[in-house]
Amino acid sequence: MEKKLTKKVLNKSFHNWYYGNLTCFSQEHMQTFGYLCSMLPIVEELYSKKEDQQKAMHTYTAFFNTEPQVGSVIVGMTAGLEEARANGAEDVDDETINGLRAGLMGPIAGIGDSLVVGTVIPILLGVAMGMSTGGSPVGAIFYTIVWNLFAYFGMKLLYFKGYELGGKAVDFLVGPQGEALRESITMVGGIVIGAVAATWVSVQTSFTMIAKGETVPYLILQNTLDGVYPGLLTAVFVLFCWFLLSKKKLSPIKVMLLLVVIALVGVLVGFFNPGLTY
C-alpha cells in the first residue's frame, strides 16, 4: 500500500524544527541535531522495522547549517523525498537527499540572512522603535506579535510548500519573480533604514568659533552643516563606517575600536563635547 504521511506527523516534524533547529548548537554540528529531531517522527511513521529506521536516520547525520527560518523549505522537501523513498522510488537514495541538502544550504542561507534577518526584521524593528518613542511599550509588543506570527506561519508555509512541491518551491524563491519580490523588499529596507538612521542616530559637533572679545560665536559648525543637509554629520559617519566595513573589509569590532579612537581625539581637540554636568 502507498505510504502517505499524515498531517499530524508533518506538523510534529515541523514543530520540532521550529523550536529545536538551533537549541543544541555547536561549531562542529550546527543544526544537525535539530534536523535529526525533525526527521524522527517522519522516519518512525514511514518505516516499521528498526533497521530501516536506523538506515534512514543515518542519512540525516550529515552536517547541516542554513538560515533556519527560510531553511524550513529544505526540511519540508526532504520529508517529501523520504516519503518517496519509503514508497520504493528508485532514484531517491542517501546521495540524492544529501546532495540536495548540501546544494541548498548555501543559497537558502544567503536569501534568509539578507531577506529575513537583514531586511524584514530591521524594517519591523524600525517601525516598532518609532512606536516606542518616549519609552512606550507599544512598539516592543507590536514587534513581538507581528514578527512571531510572520515567522511561525511563514515557516509553516515554507515547510508544507517544500513537502508538496519539492524542487519547485525553491525555484520560486530563487527564480525571477522571487528575485523581483526580494529586490522590492530590499528597497523598503533601504528607505526604512535611512529613516531609522536619521531618527535614532545623532552625531553632533560642539565646534564653534568665537571672535575675540565677543560672547556669541560667529560659527556654530553644527548649524552650518545642518543648513547644508539636515543630519549631514550623521550621514557622513554612517558612510564612513560603511566604507570601512565594505571597502576596507574591517570587522565590526575593529570599526568600533576605531570610533573609540576618533571619539577620544575629537574630545581632546574640542570637536566633540557631550556637555556633561552633574
Binding site: V201, C241, P274
Partner: peptide, 20 residues
C-alpha cells in the same frame, strides 16, 4: 559618551553593507 553617539553608525553601516 561620544562613542555612545557614534556606535549606532556601525549598526546602520552593517545593514547598508548588505543592501548596497
Amino acid at each position: 559618551f561620544t562613542v555612545g553617539s557614534l556606535l549606532p553608525c556601525v549598526g546602520i553601516a552593517i545593514l547598508l553593507k548588505q543592501i548596497v
